[in-house]
Design a binder for these strands. Sequence first.
DNA 1: GACCAGGCACATC
DNA 2: GATGTGCATGGT
Length: 229
Amino acid sequence: MENLRISPMSSSTDNKLMCFYEALLDHFGPQHWWPGQSPFEVMVGAVLTQNTNWSNVEKAIKNLKNAQALTPERINNLTHEELAQLIRPAGYFNIKAKRLKNFIRWFCSDYNASIESLRELSVDRLREELLSINGIGRETADSIILYALEKLTFVVDTYTYRILLRHGCIDPDSDYERTKEYCQANLPDDIALYNELHALIVRTGKIHCKPRPACLECPLARFSHDVEA
DNA sequence: GACCAGGCACATC
DNA sequence: GATGTGCATGGT
């Protein structure tokens, strides 16, 4: 990845986001997301990781692989109970089994389980279609578009919102779409950068950016960090 | 034992 | 439209 050098102090505050990116990349290094071996595995992982620690998702994916069930056709042919048991370690297994089935039914019936067919669609069309599937919300849709299909869309999550709010980049009433707009307006059109920044934000959020207290050891603390937030 | 984790849909007001 | 709640396992 191109190693842009932007001084946090000299580049002014009109692009905090790029300063954050530089600081986090310097501190943590590349995160090599998404840890899936295929686009389909990434899509499955995107559903399974909803409100769930990734280590639990890995167990569920391992179960699917061991059962030789990690293909659209195989998952389509599993019963609800069979699928739910395989993904049990990821939590919410009953509801996630339904969500996976919904997603894969759409993928198979509308796009013949073809990743390339999905890639031919525009981001707007993809997003609209994904969001029409019960169980696929904004973050899951954007994760699939960015990490599985490698198209330009920024993924917002609770850490993104929390960090940007704490640094005064967004208003407390900013919703997902407004937060996403802020990010995309302040970043170059670079899929690899979107990929890396979201991963770095998650890494940061896990360690430093709990709801409170703000952590002075956070690599972002020097950027007008509101320690009272 | 409490809390958290890479959300989402639905019910209720 | 905003808020509350159910969904569930596994690590710390």
